[in-house]
Design a protein around this nucleic acid. Structure first.
Lengths: 198, 198
DNA sequence: TACAAGATAGATCGATCGTTCTAGCATTAA
DNA sequence: TTAATGCTAGAACGATCGATCTATCTTGTA
């Protein structure tokens, strides 16, 4: 098969690096080529155009996230446990594809309608997963507020913001940080207790 | 004095609009000029260059935010009440300068070292205000976690994410949304109770 | 060997970028 | 009237953009 050559992946990796650092409009094809000592034509050999490159990044990183989260959310166990697992899976996927997710959230208006549509669809899907799960928790009396959508936005804000400030700093392990974030989402500032390690 | 002409402010307003929608690199001087049926030279008459325009936007919007928040945080009253007021002031300032704040958080790498420095300094100042206040709350036993900084990041994530999804939708008033966010920050998903309106 | 297909570089295209230059128009002061 | 100053438009600069074209070079296959 040899569907993915190493050389193609190198281009992709570099594009992820630069897009996540400088944004879509701020990164030129020449920048990408230069960064790996390749010619511009070489980039165009593997990808039709700039947006195609952008779509390819989504393809092998963020695009599968909604399905992944759905599977976790629809698993077995108590509702609150399932929700904890959802949060954990989301955080782990985020840190695994940190750079790509960053690109994903810089919703640059330069994309074609098709690109924007894909972008929005994925974000909408993730929001819907959270809303669905929160309604279940609500029916169990575990969530008191009526404004489920606002609550979902607040959670996604915390999780997505994590992408911006986290960069493997010392002191805390990745898992510790995740537990801290989950505790915040569930119990907020006043209830967040880091001595609780389950 | 006549320091600010209307014509200059029109340019500034348009730049805020376009920068917040398309990003810094994604907006050209020609775009701005065309949007108000003005010539390119006219933009350059009021602003030295593109980055100067960007700095001018910061100047009359986000730049004063740290001082504003500090004043609120250093006011009278119980620590937790002061913290509530801090959150409320932050949310109100965010929605007041929603577009400018959006620009501010798209940390485009295209800016000069000076521009990037200003950007980072303001964000750092705001973080420090939260960290300081949280340490006070911690010393009162109101915050249990040891990881104050992570907690501060989580809060700022919720608040800053608010800028992205809020656009005066129906159903809830601005104040209701703010109360909901404050409740989330303080008590999280499980404790958030929208029947509590103080 | 010969030929096809894939991979690469380099030159070049028209469009657009940030910026500058030149010149005209309006208003005000002397 | 004249001179100066602020505001405006339009042409043009060199640089860079995304994209294309042509021409090699490599590799595998028959």
């Amino acid at each position: 098969m040899a569907e993915n050559s190493n050389r193609r992946d190198e281009v992709l990796e570099t594009a992820i690096d630069l897009f996540s650092q400088r944004g879509y409009a701020g990164t030129s094809i020449r920048d990408i080529a230069k960064a790996i000592n390749r010619s511009v034509s070489n980039v165009y050999h593997y990808f039709e155009n700039k947006e195609d490159l952008w779509l390819a990044i989504l393809e092998y990183s963020v695009k599968g996230l909604p399905d992944k989260l759905r599977n976790v959310a629809h698993g077995d166990g108590e509702p609150l446990d399932r929700f904890r697992r959802l949060l954990k899976a989301h955080l782990e996927a985020s840190v695994l594809h940190q750079r790509e997710s960053k690109i994903f959230f810089i919703d640059e208006e330069r994309l074609s309608p098709k690109g924007k549509e894909i972008n929005r669809r994925i974000q909408k899907e993730i929001l819907d997963i959270y809303v669905e799960q929160l309604r279940i928790l609500q029916s169990h009396g575990l969530v008191k507020t009526k404004n489920i959508k606002v609550l979902a936005f607040n959670m996604l804000g915390t999780i997505n913001w994590y992408l911006r400030w986290y960069h493997a700093r010392g002191g805390m392990s990745e898992e510790e940080v995740h537990e801290e974030i989950i505790a915040f989402v569930l119990y907020g500032m006043c209830g967040s207790d880091s001595s609780n390690d389950t």
